[in-house]
Design a protein around this nucleic acid. Structure first.
Length: 209
DNA sequence: AATAGCGCCAACCGCCGCCTA
DNA sequence: ATAGGCGGCGGTTGGCGCTAT
């Protein structure tokens, strides 16, 4: 059918938001809620696309957003969840309620990814990089039998986390962070561990860092 | 002091899935 | 059954600030 652009691009402002625009959007959403995002710019008196307003609200203006440096715990949670889920930023973000998917994605790309590479780990599979044998996420077939169970657990946990994240979106503040804490204590190291995994001591990814 | 290079991050883009008429 | 609208997601980009030369 061919989708039209999210909004008429003529005359709409792009680029960084000004304090005045922020105030208008903030005031509007506080007073009336966002409702239909497409109608927000007109009602709030903004020359912006509805998508742009939504993004600005979610990533910056929403009151419960935690900004600034990631704690070691958050760092570990992201790594652990990424090992299970891959680039499912929204699901990972659901387990860090005060962080946005965009922020987590940026943090991953600019920080964790490089750190893993420096450590000789493939940032996609979280496995030791060796002789260029990059495996797509989930490729477990060539690993010892002991690891097959770990792989299954990881896959199962991944699916569960995804379902849980979806659930937590429906129930705001459902305490998913506590749940994720529980999960993280239970999950073994990276899925599909190779025998060269660096986490040999206690068999948890936490020990890597 | 000037400038080139690099890293970070806010914001955009395009696609997808869900919902409704 | 399907066309169209909308929200949401992940990948990418551009600009700004910091650092190295």
């Amino acid at each position: 059918m061919g989708r039209v652009a999210c909004c008429e691009k003529v005359g709409l402002k792009k680029g960084p938001w000004t304090p005045d625009e922020d105030k208008k959007l903030l005031d509007y959403v506080r007073n009336y809620g966002h409702g239909n995002w497409r109608s927000v710019p007109a009602k709030a008196g903004l020359q912006r696309c509805g998508k742009s307003c939504r993004l600005r609200w979610i990533n910056y203006l929403k009151p419960d957003i935690k900004r600034g440096n990631f704690s070691a715990e958050e760092d570990h949670t992201i790594i652990q969840l990424h090992a299970l889920l891959g680039n499912k930023w929204s699901i990972i973000a659901a387990h860090l309620p005060q962080r946005t998917d965009n922020e987590i994605k940026n943090y991953w790309n600019t920080n964790i990814k490089k750190r893993l590479i420096r450590m000789g780990l493939d940032p996609i599979t979280h496995k030791k990089i060796e002789n260029n044998t990059f495996e797509p996420f989930g490729g477990c077939h060539e690993y010892p039998k002991d690891n097959i169970n770990i792989c299954h657990v990881a896959q199962w946990e991944g699916a569960r986390l995804e379902a849980e994240a979806r659930g937590s979106k429906l129930q705001v503040g459902s305490g998913s962070s506590q749940l994720s804490g529980l999960i993280l204590r239970k999950i073994p190291t990276q899925p599909c561990l190779s025998s060269h995994s660096v986490s040999t001591k206690n068999n948890t990814a936490y020990n890597i860092f």
